[in-house]
Simulated assay, not measured.
Amino acid sequence: MRTLKFLPFCFILFSCSNDQGQRNPYLQEIGFRFEVNLNLPLYSPLTNPGNAVYIGAQGVGIRGVFVMNTGFAFRAFEASCPNHSPSPCSTTQLEGQTAVCACEGYEYSLFTGQQLSVPQDGNRYFNMLEYRAIQSGNIVTISN
Score class of each variant (00 low, 15 high):
residue 27 L to S: 08
residue 73 A to K: 13
residue 77 F to Q: 00
residue 7 L to G: 06
residue 8 P to T: 07
residue 102 A to H: 09
residue 23 R to A: 11
residue 10 C to I: 11
residue 22 Q to F: 03
residue 66 F to H: 01
residue 53 V to M: 07
residue 6 F to K: 10
residue 89 C to A: 11
residue 126 F to I: 14
residue 131 Y to D: 00
residue 56 G to S: 13
residue 35 E to P: 05
residue 91 T to H: 02
residue 76 A to N: 10
residue 104 E to Y: 04
residue 33 R to K: 15
residue 76 A to W: 07
residue 131 Y to L: 03
residue 16 C to G: 04
residue 70 T to H: 03
residue 78 E to K: 08
residue 50 G to W: 06
residue 20 Q to G: 02
residue 142 I to N: 01
residue 3 T to W: 02
residue 139 I to V: 15
residue 63 R to K: 13
residue 109 S to R: 13
residue 80 S to N: 09
residue 55 I to L: 10
residue 117 S to V: 09
residue 79 A to I: 08
residue 119 P to M: 10
residue 10 C to H: 00
residue 133 A to H: 05
residue 49 P to E: 13
residue 60 V to I: 08
residue 98 T to A: 15
residue 7 L to K: 08
residue 109 S to L: 14
residue 15 S to C: 05
residue 43 Y to R: 01
residue 30 I to H: 00
residue 79 A to M: 00
residue 50 G to Y: 04
residue 58 Q to A: 14
residue 139 I to Q: 09
residue 37 N to F: 00
residue 13 L to K: 11
residue 15 S to I: 02
residue 29 E to N: 04
residue 34 F to E: 06
residue 69 N to M: 03
residue 125 Y to L: 15
residue 11 F to H: 04
residue 28 Q to K: 03
residue 124 R to V: 15
residue 62 I to V: 03
residue 44 S to D: 13
residue 120 Q to G: 07
residue 104 E to H: 15
residue 3 T to V: 14
residue 99 A to Q: 05
residue 24 N to I: 08
residue 134 I to H: 09
residue 95 E to S: 13
residue 2 R to H: 12
residue 140 V to I: 07
residue 144 N to C: 06
residue 11 F to G: 02
residue 109 S to V: 12
residue 119 P to G: 13
residue 92 T to E: 09
residue 38 L to H: 00
residue 119 P to C: 10
residue 82 P to D: 09
residue 41 P to S: 14
residue 35 E to I: 12
residue 55 I to Q: 02
residue 126 F to N: 14
residue 67 V to W: 06
residue 33 R to Q: 14
residue 47 T to W: 00
residue 116 L to T: 07
residue 77 F to D: 02
residue 104 E to P: 03
residue 7 L to I: 05
residue 50 G to H: 06
residue 77 F to H: 00
residue 18 N to S: 07
residue 64 G to T: 03
residue 113 G to C: 13
residue 28 Q to P: 00
residue 64 G to H: 08
residue 87 S to W: 02
residue 9 F to W: 06
residue 72 F to P: 04
residue 81 C to D: 14
residue 125 Y to K: 07
residue 142 I to Q: 06
residue 143 S to G: 10
residue 38 L to S: 09
residue 44 S to H: 08
residue 35 E to K: 15
residue 34 F to I: 05
residue 101 C to K: 13
residue 76 A to H: 02
residue 83 N to H: 10
residue 121 D to G: 08
residue 2 R to Q: 09
residue 46 L to S: 04
residue 15 S to F: 02
residue 132 R to W: 02
residue 121 D to P: 07
residue 104 E to N: 09
residue 130 E to G: 05
residue 119 P to S: 12
residue 31 G to E: 03
residue 130 E to Q: 11
residue 136 S to V: 14
residue 87 S to I: 13
residue 108 Y to I: 09
residue 46 L to A: 07
residue 60 V to G: 01
residue 126 F to K: 07
residue 113 G to Q: 11
residue 45 P to W: 00
residue 104 E to Q: 12
residue 88 P to A: 09
residue 58 Q to E: 10
residue 114 Q to V: 06
residue 86 P to E: 01
residue 134 I to A: 15
residue 52 A to Y: 02
residue 92 T to F: 04
residue 42 L to I: 12
residue 122 G to E: 10
residue 40 L to Y: 00
residue 29 E to S: 11
residue 91 T to V: 11
residue 49 P to N: 14
residue 24 N to F: 05
